[in-house]
Amino acid sequence: MPGKSRRDFLKTTAVIGAGVAGLSSSTAKAAPKNILSEDRMGVLVDTTVCVGCRNCEWACKTAHDLPAGELHSYEDRSVFTEKRRPGTKALTVVNEYSSGKNSNLPLDVKVQCMHCDHPACVSACIVGAFSKEENGSVIWDTDKCIGCRYCMAACPFQVPAFEYDKAINPSIMKCDFCFNRTKEGKLPACVAICPVEALTYGTRTELVKIARERIKRNPDKYVDHIFGEYEVGGTAWMYLSSKDFSELDFPKLGTNPAPGVSESIQHGIFAYFVPPVSLYALLGGIMWISKHRKELDEEGKL
């Protein structure tokens, strides 16, 4: 009987729907840690203070068990002839640029992960291997990562690097804000070693105040822009400079969080699984009707 069978069909659909809806509530929990704490930490990098001694490069490698060499070998300034990027062998590098306004001293820019407030890498990672921790650090979990490199495609600062030369357990490498050191109350290795206090470690709120203060006190020296205050929704590492940031190779980015658009699409499609389940029901309905109509047609023909 068509009537009874339709009820059967509706029941099946409902059961499937309920099953999927059950799944969706557990998805909500199964997301990586992404905490935006009030007193998350950050670092203010003053490129006008940095002298390009590259001690931070050495300290960072040493703190992360990467081959670092002798500290005095970092006095070699010839590396500044080309612009370098953080990679698998160094999680941070310093690049040198010509002087900014009202000064003839060069500008030195330390580059590492920005520890975004709304990190694209955390949003993108297929298995949630990236997380934004309470203290502001964005860290990576080797036990989860499958090596798909989507985080690299997603990061607006082109930061995560991948060990392409390893056949087994290649890692994603990036600055982890010295998570293991700060956990024990120590300073990040690069901040600790910096001889001229170009790096200031503190809560992000405090750092923004300090940066504003410096710009106000020295309007002739600084450009009126704290890079990272608003870029991609804010970053934990922020920069001061005496020159437009685009001349220091900072990417031009808007103030919207990098994962914003893609997450709203994603959540729109999956709003509690309603769209897929309705599509399922709709198709089921079409299937039932078109089959039924055909049968009626054929009966009419007889």
Binding site: S26, T27, A28, A30, A31, P32, S123, A124, C125, I126, V127, G128, A129, K144, C145, I146, G147, C148, R149, Y150, F162, E163, K166, N169, P170, P259, S262, E263, I265, Q266, H267, I269, F270
Partner: peptide
């Protein structure tokens, strides 16, 4: 194709138990 492209092919099953609802790649996978 996915199997050969991902760096840690032996973890290809991870998305089955490690979920990230905001990741488009997770949904595709």
């Amino acid at each position: 194709g996915v199997f050969v492209d991902i760096g840690r092919w032996y973890f290809i099953w991870h998305p089955l138990i490690m979920w990230n609802g905001s990741s488009a790649l997770f949904e595709v996978g």
